[in-house]
Design a protein around this nucleic acid. Structure first.
Lengths: 198, 198, 198, 198
DNA sequence: AATGAATGAGACTTCATTCAT
DNA sequence: TATGAATGAAGTCTCATTCAT
């Protein structure tokens, strides 16, 4: 019964990643010990090492899992009937960030910030982050193009550059939310509407 | 070597911080060992511990030093004759980020990203980051107010919210520059000009 | 090696304490390093720290173990058919001291002397010593009371004071035995018989 | 002027020993660092090392100084017109112990207890302690002899053995006073009078 | 003679990983 | 397959002592 076993295997891995995520949210990647993950997961050391080869692999899985929550956003961006303006897309993105931050299982945006730091010295995490974030930027490129077609945005500027700036607004929201705590989708929406063309 | 001046003391601390910064840029805060810092600083273990009482204190000093490079930006923001528009202020900020990133001593923006992660589990670093970043945001508040007075920005939106969004664009630039590498002041300027009112 | 019994756990702790005792007998508490204890115990550093969470805890266990050898004396004091006189009790005590001092595992009286010094700056060791020694003194109180009933000892003197003096003879024997080396149960018995009433 | 210089030298040494004693009373020999002694003495590191070759030498001087306070007792033991009985000699000794313990400069009996422990692994301290203590015992031998001459004490017992027991009562008083705290010259006198012949 | 910053060996402890059961 | 005790390299920090000034 390979299917059941494979499912079981994935369930166990998810269990370990969830345990690790809880630890990382509290203590970051480096202060989280394997003993922490093992305790939190309810498994034994040997069992955990049966599913992951090393701490680095678990760290990678936690980071990938956290960065992967972006995917859920793509559907929303595409689900609207009328094409999204850059402003609307950013509002949706900010709202999505807060939603996943408040989802059960802990605030994954904290894991994302840890992953940013880790990406600077861990190629595999950097590649994952790069991949996920470029996908999001690509969606913003599409939106920028449509805005250029509509005349809202200067068509002479490469849409990629517009997408860079759009994407570039999200980490700043995450950071202010976690470190300062005085931003919300509402304040950001107001600020965006004041600053951005439409 | 008795009777060492306060100046000498500060120079030694700076020497240690610079050594630590070099290590953190390569390996992050946690993979940087005291042995690394000691070796890089050219001092002995005892000497280093004569200037800082723990690794945590050194980490704090490195983070504070890196986050403190923002201060140099304030002069630039205030040095212009005619009031800065939000767009011009952001362009100046992005340019400043790249300048300090390329300054000798290593790319401090890498340290800043480490500090973001650390701020989530280290109150003293979070307080420093919060303080520095709120100062920058306050400058942006002034700029937003002037733009509202000029009629460029909707005067009914709290200037603080506008400043949040302005400030919020900077981390995203830093992150894309370090993790993806395809952004520059030029691309960002183009994107900003396409997106922002003026 | 999972599923280790509580018995095994206690045996390991005893093994570590025995190793530590051997070191302390040679070098005292402070000159004994964890590396010494680890080497002597035949375990690894990690294993030792699995059973004790710090050197201080091991020191405490060694001290408590050494001071606990008094307990064996109580049975002897109570095992005699006819009530013990103060003189006989002291003779038995002195003899017991020499017996345990010569027991395999090393001279615990050396550990006791270390514990006296440590008790002056370590509350937990002081409490242990106080507890054990007060128990012995309480036995001496009983013996003093019987002697008062017999008419050997002035019944108007609080038995506690008599017990203080009785107990107070033991450390001096231990000290002379270790530091000067010219005392023995025989010389002490002769001295006691010459000085004490009976 | 060698005399003044020598006096100065001795004064400085005494100053360092007094500083060290204060530290040892609080923390014991091993937890007392040279930095502690240096700070407490008000001198510089170099100066302290100008008067003592090593920490071990300072420790030795502190121990010798503390054990030397016994000497003051000898005069008292010899100053009485009528020969002292063993009982009276012990009472005087106990009283002396409390007096020196309460003298300004800190409780030297605490230093003595530290010295006992140190004597077990430091030959030079053991020799000092042995010397001082044997001197006291010798005085007790004289007293025992006189008591034997008076008929108070069995003349067939070697006076040395009687002195061992007499001397042996003192450490126990010191220890109970420091560790338990419920003994005093008064309680001990009562206990001694109840137990000892006269 | 005095100063006190500097030295660096060595102390205590942690923790990712393994492997006998 | 699962367990968790054991491993030991490596990390942080201390402190007796020296020596340039």
């Amino acid at each position: 019964m390979p299917k059941v076993t494979e499912e079981h295997r994935l369930a166990r891995r998810a269990q370990i990643v969830a345990a690790g995520r809880a630890c990382v949210i509290e203590q970051g990647f480096h202060k989280t010990t394997m003993a922490d993950v093992i305790r939190e997961s309810g498994l034994s050391a040997g069992a955990v090492y049966g599913y992951f080869k090393s701490k680095e692999e678990i760290v990678g899985a936690i980071a990938e899992d956290a960065l992967g929550t972006i995917h859920q956003l793509f559907d929303k961006l595409l689900a609207t009937e009328e094409p999204l303006t850059p402003l609307a897309a950013l509002e949706a993105t900010i709202e999505h960030v807060v939603e996943i931050a408040q989802a059960p299982g802990g605030d994954v945006t904290r894991v994302a910030v840890q992953a940013w730091a880790e990406a600077l010295r861990n190629d595999s995490i950097r590649d994952v982050a790069r991949g996920k974030y470029c996908q999001l930027r690509d969606h913003f490129v599409d939106i920028a193009r449509r805005a250029q077609a509509d005349g809202t945005v200067d068509p002479d500027v490469p849409a990629e550059y517009v997408a860079q700036v759009m994407f570039g607004m999200v980490p700043g929201f995450v950071l202010q939310r976690l470190m300062i705590g005085d931003v919300s989708p509402a304040t950001y929406r107001a600020g965006l509407r004041a600053l951005l063309r439409d």
